[in-house]
Amino acid sequence: MDYKVILSDLAKRQLDDILFYIYATLDNEVAAARILEDAEYTIQKLAQIGGSLKICEEPELAEYGYRKMHFLSHRYLMLYTINGTCIHVDRIYHALEDYKNLPD
């Protein structure tokens, strides 16, 4: 079953911030493009397999029903919930961030 993947405004802004930092601050256009491709690929895979991934083990995330999907080639992840046939990506983080304790 394929899901419809919806990125929240916050998730879109987080992805934009990641790409802008790599493109402008680190001056690495190629890396930014590759991360964008990886994000797009991850969203496509999420639509296909998102329902098969378990709810997060971290209690702080599990209480909201969050699941997570890691990017294929980069150290980023998406936190999402499922509602019927829709996957709602609420946030996108670097894997080294303390994402389970970050404020709303």
Rank of each mutant, 00 (worst) to 15 (best):
L46R: 06
Y3T: 01
L15T: 02
K68G: 00
L72Q: 12
N101Q: 11
K45D: 10
K12W: 06
P103F: 01
I22N: 03
M69K: 14
I18Y: 12
D90R: 15
D90E: 15
D98W: 07
Q44V: 11
M1S: 05
L7A: 04
S52L: 07
N28P: 02
H70I: 08
D104K: 11
A11V: 09
G51V: 05
K100Y: 15
K54N: 06
L15Y: 08
M1T: 10
Y21W: 04
D104M: 13
A95E: 14
G84R: 13
Y93C: 13
T85G: 10
H74G: 09
R91A: 11
K100N: 12
L46A: 03
L15M: 12
Q44N: 07
S73K: 15
L72G: 10
E29P: 01
T25E: 13
I55V: 12
D98E: 15
Q48H: 08
D90S: 15
L26A: 10
K45C: 00
N101P: 11
C86S: 14
A47Q: 12
Y64N: 10
T81S: 07
D27Y: 05
N83W: 12
I35C: 02
A32T: 02
L19Q: 06
M1H: 03
I82T: 03
G84T: 14
I6L: 06
Q14T: 07
Q48T: 02
K45R: 09
H88S: 12
P59R: 04
T42R: 00
M1W: 02
G50Y: 02
R34F: 00
E29K: 13
E37R: 10
I49D: 00
T85M: 14
D98M: 11
S73T: 13
T81K: 03
Y64D: 03
L77E: 11
Q14P: 06
S73D: 15
Y3F: 14
T25I: 09
M1G: 08
K100R: 15
R13W: 01
S8H: 00
E29N: 05
D17M: 04
L10H: 08
E97L: 05
L46M: 07
E40D: 09
D38P: 00
Q48I: 09
N83Y: 05
I55W: 15
L53V: 13
H74C: 09
D16F: 13
A32Q: 04
M78H: 02
L77F: 01
Y99T: 05
T81I: 14
Y80V: 05
M78C: 05
K45H: 04
D98P: 14
M1D: 02
K54I: 01
Q14V: 07
I82K: 01
A47P: 03
R91C: 13
R91N: 04
K54M: 04
D16C: 05
D27A: 12
S8E: 06
E40Y: 02
M78S: 03
L77W: 03
E60W: 04
E37W: 00
N28K: 05
L77Y: 00
E57P: 00
